[in-house]
Design a protein around this nucleic acid. Structure first.
Lengths: 243, 243
DNA sequence: CGCTTCATTGAAACGTTTCAACGCTAGTGG
DNA sequence: CCACTAGCGTTGAAACGTTTCAATGAAGCG
């Protein structure tokens, strides 16, 4: 994998959110990034760790999660190509949650030192990265609404639309479908329900012809109907930075 | 209210998270902040707005919330003296949620322009503010866990301990009690339950001698017991920036 | 082939919501 | 000073959404 393949999703994302100049791109190109294939479920950073590098998703998906006192796991976020899920470790030195691979993926590791230098000397990039962590927070807020106020069916519909919308923005959808290597159990951990109930919800959404789950592939059958069921409004994703 | 009284909670917070030099403090002191008394429930920024100033909490509390499709309100965060609840509006131009006063409070309004200049020229302050938005996100993540995985009793206990711990850090607790002008209905909107159930939970916590609610005042009766019931670990608040 | 993982099912138990009603308290105006 | 009002806290009972447990089927893998 060449250096330009490694940083391409990252650059793409930065370009949409800020006016990156040639010098910025050069600075990013000279970052010492080590790319690595990571297997499904492998830990990238764990609660209590003090990472010395950030992880850039190059291909595949990464999830963030936390184990609560009862031993149950809550999934906090899903990350796709171009995301830096643990950018916070630059400023919050101790991890307060876990980061792990969702399916097999390719990750790039950027040491904190050079990343800090980049932020210091390239204000455009600093701003784009700060903005990124803020949209992250906006997604967390929407998840709080989703889990706190909507019933399980809407929650699943909402999450599917979120994933679809974000993947579409980076051109990784296939019509109204996209590949996402998650089991129903994993989805259940994300929306805060039991696996059994998650399964019943999936069946309901299928029978209402809104969407379909099939071994790592999610297909939207009726986008308008799903939006309606999900109470979905993409505003919170802040995909258009000019707004 | 003098200028130094206005910026004192803000400076206090910045001092703990970064090495602020005298020049930084001078730059903050010369910010054009307009302080204003704001009444309970008054809107500070609403979804869809494009604010041109950020709001600094000087005294009292501010809440962030969002109305979902069913008309129900989910509270997303509570903010106290020294917080800038809508700092994100500097980079995410359209508000994706509402900000309003919780009880009567004193707020300072800082125009985006001077704030942006401050960030540009004072990297220490920029970093401290970035860090602040990151701890905000850490709190959102914990709320996702709280609402997603814990039962209503633990949720309430957890939220009370969060408020207590944060207020204690800025010296605004009174032994094991603190004043917090929230009704049970408001708490219910924060933890995602009905008012009726919230009330039953409060009664349970009272009868277990863990805490007491009384007209705007929350008293912890048994801190260890409450921690146990809440599954609370303050790590996610990142109160010690040296860690 | 057997093993494991994932999806599916039924039935009972549980936590929570809903609705409707009532009591308390503080504030307001006659 | 009292009656009235509005907001908040409290209660009971029935309905609802969801969990739990335990079991079964289907698919993928060494």
């Amino acid at each position: 994998m060449t250096k330009s393949e490694i940083i391409e999703p990252f650059l793409k994302r930065l370009r949409v959110s800020t006016d990156i100049v040639e010098e910025d791109e050069r600075a990013i190109s000279s970052l010492p990034i080590v790319a690595r294939q990571v297997a499904n479920g492998e830990a990238i950073a764990s609660i209590g760790d003090r990472p010395s590098a950030c992880c850039l998703v190059i291909d595949g998906f990464v999830l963030r999660s936390k184990i609560v006192g009862t031993g149950q796991r809550q999934i906090l976020a899903f990350h796709q190509a171009g995301d830096v899920p643990d950018l916070q470790s630059l400023f919050l030195h101790v991890m307060d949650h876990d980061v792990s691979a969702l399916g097999n993926c390719v990750l790039g590791f950027i040491p904190h030192g050079p990343l800090r230098d980049l932020i210091k000397h390239r204000p455009n990039i600093a701003q784009a990265l700060w903005r990124d962590t803020l949209t992250d927070a906006a997604v967390f807020r929407e998840w709080i609404c989703n889990i706190g106020q909507r019933d399980a069916t809407s929650r699943v519909a909402h999450l599917v639309l979120e994933l679809y919308t974000r993947l579409k923005a980076i051109g990784r959808t296939d019509g109204l479908a996209f590949s996402f290597p998650a089991t129903q159990a994993l989805f259940a951990d994300a929306i805060g329900t039991s696996v059994v109930h998650m399964n019943r919800v999936v069946q309901e959404l299928r029978s209402r012809r809104l969407l379909d789950f099939d071994r790592g592939r999610i297909s939207i059958l009726d986008e308008a109907g799903l939006r309606e069921a999900a109470d979905f409004d993409a505003l919170y994703l802040h995909l258009d930075p000019s707004l």
